[in-house]
């Protein structure tokens, strides 16, 4: 599927425009070497983070000069000890951090060659292209059905056939269909913790976003559901770009193509997953993944 074809015409134009003007500006700033930017499959980068720093409160930096590329249609894993800023960076990709008072940032983030902090960019259209699964599951106190189709509802989709189809597809993808197909109109709050998390995943993929951000999606799931979600992630990467935060090293090796290790708000190392886990360049990374750390 051609991703740009999903976008409205106006946005496509803007994409082309911004990619044109970006060529000079980014070329200078990107400091990572060319062979890293070009992933093994030779895919173009989809999210580019350029020298990005972030503060929640003035003078307290939680992200320091992060520069990284996330390739299209691949799974990128963020790993690192608790509090190192993985969630913060992830939430910047769809500008969820805008909602917090007093935050500030430096540097740039490009999604599909578009500066997401550009003043002309409509944050709602950005968020419609990005699905997000939060660290804490947060289903709406509505029915399971309404939860799944929420993003379609707010986009004005009213056709019952499409909505029904979306619910079934999304729930099946999130490995929740069998358990809930007979109670779609019951409250989502009656689900178990793990089911709620899978519902949130179904909700995030309902409108087929280009990017799926997952913040520890399996932390509340049993091995079976985890396996299903991992399977889902592998399926999703056919079409979508996936960024996943995980504390589970095995999971990172199983699902991700590339991995980034963060420590104290800095990107320590980013590489192909197989390389990062078998032969890390930095000592800190090696300590962390071999469990000698934290």
């Amino acid at each position: 599927m051609n991703l740009t074809s999903l976008l409205p015409i106006a946005m496509q134009k803007e994409t082309i425009k911004s990619s044109a003007q970006q060529d000079e500006s980014v070329g200078a700033e990107v400091s990572v070497s060319a062979d890293v930017a070009e992933s093994p499959a030779g895919r173009p980068d989809y999210i580019k983070v350029c020298d990005f720093s972030f503060n929640y409160v003035p003078a307290v930096r939680v992200l320091h000069n992060i520069t990284m590329e996330i390739p299209e249609r691949q799974v990128t894993a963020f790993i690192g000890p608790s509090g190192c800023g993985k969630t913060t960076l992830l939430r910047n990709f769809n500008r969820m951090n805008d909602l917090i008072d007093g935050v500030s940032h430096e540097g740039k983030i490009y999604v599909n060659d578009q500066d997401i902090y550009d003043r002309n960019l409509e944050v709602i259209s950005l968020r419609k292209r990005i699905g997000m699964v939060f660290q804490k599951s947060n289903p709406f106190p509505k029915s399971i059905y309404e939860n799944v189709i929420y993003s379609l509802r707010v986009s004005g989709q009213k056709k019952k056939a499409i909505l029904d189809e979306t619910v079934e597809r999304s729930l099946k993808s999130a490995a929740l269909w069998e358990e809930t197909k007979d109670r779609l109109h019951d409250s989502a709050l009656g689900l178990s913790g793990g089911q709620m998390q899978r519902l949130c995943i179904a909700r995030a993929i309902a409108n087929r976003p280009e990017i799926l951000l997952m913040d520890e999606p399996c932390s509340a799931l049993d091995p079976i559901a985890t396996a299903k979600i991992e399977e889902l992630i592998t399926e999703l990467k056919e079409n979508f770009t996936v960024v996943i935060v995980t504390h589970n090293m095995q999971q990172a090796t199983r699902v991700s193509d590339r991995a980034a290790y963060f420590y104290l708000g800095k990107l320590v190392e980013m590489d192909d997953t197989t390389k990062l886990f078998s032969n890390p360049e930095q000592k800190e990374t090696e300590d962390y993944i071999s469990g000698r750390f934290g």
Binding site: M96, I124, F134, P139, F140, R153, V154, S155
Partner: peptide, 19 residues
Amino acid sequence: GMREASLAAGASKWQTIQH
């Protein structure tokens, strides 16, 4: 969390308030 989930799904501020 509720508000963030709604906004992340592409709802506007008013839609979030409304729904």
